[in-house]
């Protein structure tokens, strides 16, 4: 029973990370109808930037200063990627987009190793690694959950209560109508990319103290993020968040009680395919009408 509770709670903590990535994926998907396969690598690269900002070998800034600076830089980077790389090919076929996403994947992955070398790095946490509730959850994991919930709350408020957030939703859902009310759709897309990159950066900075910082640290995490997005519904940000938490818990349950830790990624694979086949709308999403 103790093991069950421990696994559930720690699943909730990693689920928070998956929820962030799932949200980032869904934000991009809603805006441009594509999956950002490079979302994880972008997050990883952001985390390296944070590491550089706070490490003694870099600028040696305090954690929270580096944390905020990294979010801002990631936002700018994400928006720039949309404007520079994706805006020119917005009308190109699906395959072109997939190729460019994979190109970004490859480039960020390489660039991280190229600039910061491939040896795993320790990543600081302001929450420490002491037990929070003995045998159940550590202080860092509590911090992960808390930061994620604050972040998700802020994002929810932004989309729900600000005119810009409303315009972003409108631009993503019906770009042409949005233009007709004077919304600069291209600008909103760039904002969306910036936000997604920032959310990813937070996910990266929270998971890095657990996994160590390496260029490949986000591979599996992104897969769970995708699984969360698919489970929750690709057209529903709230669904994606719930899906992310669910996948985090499910991962731990399956890993501990059913298939063992060695098949965790296979669980994500099976989950993605089965949900796409059986219930493509996910928990909270709409069925996307297939255009022939």
């Amino acid at each position: 029973m103790d093991l069950f509770i421990e696994q559930t709670v720690s699943g909730l903590a990693t689920g928070a990370i998956y929820a962030c990535l799932a949200l980032a994926v869904v934000m991009i998907y809603q805006a441009i109808d594509h999956f950002n396969f490079a979302q994880g690598e972008m997050a990883m690269f952001s985390t390296y930037i944070a590491w550089y900002l706070m490490d003694d070998a870099g600028l040696g800034l305090p954690f929270w200063v580096a944390f905020v600076a990294c979010i801002v830089l990631s936002f700018i980077g994400g928006a720039a990627i949309e404007r520079i790389v994706f805006a020119p090919i917005s009308d190109a076929p699906v395959l072109s987009h997939i190729i460019v996403f994979i190109a970004l994947f490859s480039m960020f992955n390489s660039l991280a190793g190229f600039l910061f070398d491939f040896t795993p790095k320790n990543f600081e946490t302001p929450f420490g690694h002491t037990p929070f509730i003995d045998g159940v959850i550590s202080s860092h994991r509590v911090g992960m959950i808390a930061v994620t919930l604050i972040l998700l709350g802020l994002i929810y408020a932004f989309f729900r209560f600000t005119p810009i957030g409303l315009a972003m939703r409108a631009a993503a859902a019906s770009p042409e109508s949005a233009r007709l009310v004077g919304v600069r759709v291209g600008f909103m897309l760039a904002l969306g990319w910036g936000l997604a990159a920032s959310v990813g950066a937070v996910a990266g900075m929270l998971i890095a103290p657990i996994t160590f910082l390496t260029p490949d640290m986000m591979l599996g995490t992104l897969l769970y993020g995708f699984a969360g997005a698919v489970v929750g519904g690709l057209t529903s940000p709230l669904g994606a968040v719930i899906g992310g938490f669910m996948v985090g818990i499910l991962e731990n349950w399956m890993g501990t009680f059913v298939v063992g830790s060695q098949l965790k990624l296979t669980v994500a694979l099976v989950l993605i395919i089965v949900v796409l086949l059986v219930k493509p709308a996910g928990l909270l999403g709409r069925v996307v009408v297939k255009r022939v």
Binding site: L104, S106, S110, G113, F118
Partner: peptide, 17 residues
Amino acid sequence: QGLTGLIYGLFLIFTVY
């Protein structure tokens, strides 16, 4: 080692564009 992936990516984007 990091250079290869970078060049791959650049060529992918170059080709698409």
